[in-house]
């Protein structure tokens, strides 16, 4: 099978990837690049645990061909913190007890980031709407919503 040569910018770093055309961004991130902070589950864009940001927008990496990402910017959870410091969203998730098993959390944080980047002062209803594509089975979402709202306040404060 013909492989496709791709250039992806992941967490600010250029990666040259040679892969088969049917492989998804999720396959490449996890299996080829070892970036397992992006999680794998339903593979049908229902659970949202594979959420990453593509050119700043939340996408399900499980149904996106890696080939579709040629030349584009990908942000995964591994690229969110800066200089060893947690992002305010990450810190808020810890502070508000929003983490249980944690498997959905990297995706949840990235969905929240994409939303807050565009809507810096959301209501709880907005936050819940923004995270509707991310299933969590542990928390019941309440502390997650609280964490995102707190992070929004913290980010506004820093501006």
């Amino acid at each position: 099978m013909t492989k496709v040569a791709l250039t992806l910018t992941i967490n600010g770093q250029r990666h040259e990837v040679l892969t088969e055309p049917h492989r998804t961004l999720l396959d490449v991130l996890r299996a080829d690049l070892g970036l397992t902070g992006t999680k794998e589950n339903c593979l049908e864009a229902e659970c949202g645990v594979c959420t990453v940001l593509l050119d700043g927008r939340a996408v399900n990496a499980c149904i996106l061909l890696a080939a579709q990402c040629q030349g584009r910017q990908v942000l995964t959870i591994e690229g969110l913190g800066r200089d060893g410091q947690l992002h305010p969203l990450q810190q808020a998730f810890i502070d508000h007890g929003a983490v249980q098993c944690g498997y959905c959390i990297p995706a949840m944080i990235l969905s929240a980031k994409a939303y807050l980047d565009e809507h810096p002062a959301p209501t709880e209803a907005h936050v819940r709407e923004a995270l509707a594509g991310n299933l969590c089975r542990c928390t019941g979402y309440q502390k997650i919503a609280d964490a995102v709202l707190a992070a929004a306040r913290e980010l506004a404060h820093r501006r």
Partner: peptide
């Protein structure tokens, strides 16, 4: 918590 929010926690599926 820190490993889980930063994606460094390794699960069996990883």
């Amino acid at each position: 918590a820190p490993g889980k929010v930063s994606g460094t926690a390794i699960y069996a599926a990883d």
